[in-house]
């Protein structure tokens, strides 16, 4: 188990900068999610930490070891690819035993470790199958088993659940989080799914165009985004004026808006429901004011509802507005 320290890590491809001077400290046992749109440099950053490609600048430490130019073999990192990268010619058990074999573990120690991990990942019954005979979720488990069996210092996950359907993905998110807690292993997970990033990470790092936008706990990142990009990438954001006399703008999350029928009050902004979407537990309202500004509000499904075209007054508490820009 180790912490990870990046200072001014960068990766340039000619004139294109994939990762620009990233500073990051992941503490021992932390689960950090790296979130960004495609092309934001998140996978490149992971490849740099894994040693699959070398940085063009900066320094990297894992624990007390300077690993800036250490090849992947010397880093003791467990890595799970989105495509799993299971060896197709080996059985499940052979795949999982591979990192132990190259470490020259004794037969008994190896069998014991493989058996324990397969048990833990509920793969015991599948140990003699080939990867092509497994479902996506099972392959994902094998990839994870292979990445943790040799007790790596760090676990790196590159969109590990990206290829699975929604229900299975949610199940595995919980499982993965529990596993990480139990092992206490420092973990970095790359994703482009903001819900996944917020729900799994102790902290979230948001990247855009190779630059760090914010590193914070999910709650802080969601409610107090560092800039407009973070605000909009992490969910819907209403942009309103900050009422401190300045011309600054602030963001307001849709669930913070208060809605009342216009008949009952004259407080707030008068709007009309221009569209509404039922999302099961919640309803999403699209509201337009006479001056052209629009709002998006999310209300619980239970409670007062507003029909399409009805007049609604929108109000909010000033503390819920987070100034940006």
């Amino acid at each position: 188990m180790s912490d990870i320290r990046l200072s001014k890590i960068r990766k340039d491809y000619g004139i294109f900068t994939a990762v620009a001077d990233v500073d990051l400290h992941v503490v021992n046992g932390e689960f950090l999610t790296i979130l960004g749109p495609s092309g934001s440099g998140k996978t490149t950053l992971l490849a740099l930490i894994a040693g699959l490609s070398g940085p063009t600048g900066g320094q990297m430490h894992i624990g007390s070891q300077d690993v800036t130019y250490t090849p992947p073999q010397g880093r003791n990192i467990g890595l799970v690819f989105q495509s799993y990268a299971l060896f197709p010619h080996m059985t499940v058990a052979e795949n999982v035993a591979f990192p132990l074999e190259v470490r020259k573990w004794s037969r008994s120690k190896k069998d014991e470790a493989v058996g324990r991990v397969l048990q833990m990942m509920q793969l015991g019954a599948l140990s003699s199958r080939k990867p092509s005979q497994l479902s996506g979720g099972q392959q994902q488990r094998v990839a994870l088993a292979r990445a943790i069996v040799f007790q790596p210092n760090i676990l790196l996950l590159d969109e590990p659940l990206g290829a699975l359907d929604k229900k299975l993905r949610e199940e595995l998110q919980v499982e993965l989080k529990q596993l990480q807690r139990r092992l206490g292993i420092t973990t970095l997970l790359v994703t482009h799914d903001q819900e996944e990033a917020l729900s799994m990470g102790d902290r979230v790092m948001i990247l855009n165009e190779g630059k760090v936008q914010q590193i914070a706990t999910p709650e802080i990142a969601y409610l107090q985004p560092a800039n407009r990009f973070v605000a909009e990438f992490l969910g819907t954001a209403n942009i309103v004026s900050v009422s401190d006399g300045s011309s600054r703008k602030g963001i307001l999350r849709p669930e913070r808006l208060l809605l009342r029928t216009s008949a009952g009050t004259n407080k707030g902004v008068a709007t009309v429901v221009s569209d509404l979407v039922y999302l099961g537990q919640t309803v999403r309202y699209y509201l337009s004011a006479a001056d052209g500004t629009s709002f998006i509000a999310v209300r619980p499904f239970v409670g007062p509802k507003f029909a399409l075209g009805s007049a609604v007054n929108v109000s909010w508490t000033e503390e819920d507005v987070w100034p940006i820009d």
């Binding site: 040693g51 699959l52 880093r75 060896f87 990192p99």
Partner: peptide, 11 residues
């Protein structure tokens, strides 16, 4: 990626 995975596994 199989080769990259193998390298990260210590081979």
């Amino acid at each position: 990626r199989h080769m990259q995975a193998a390298a990260s596994l210590g081979a």
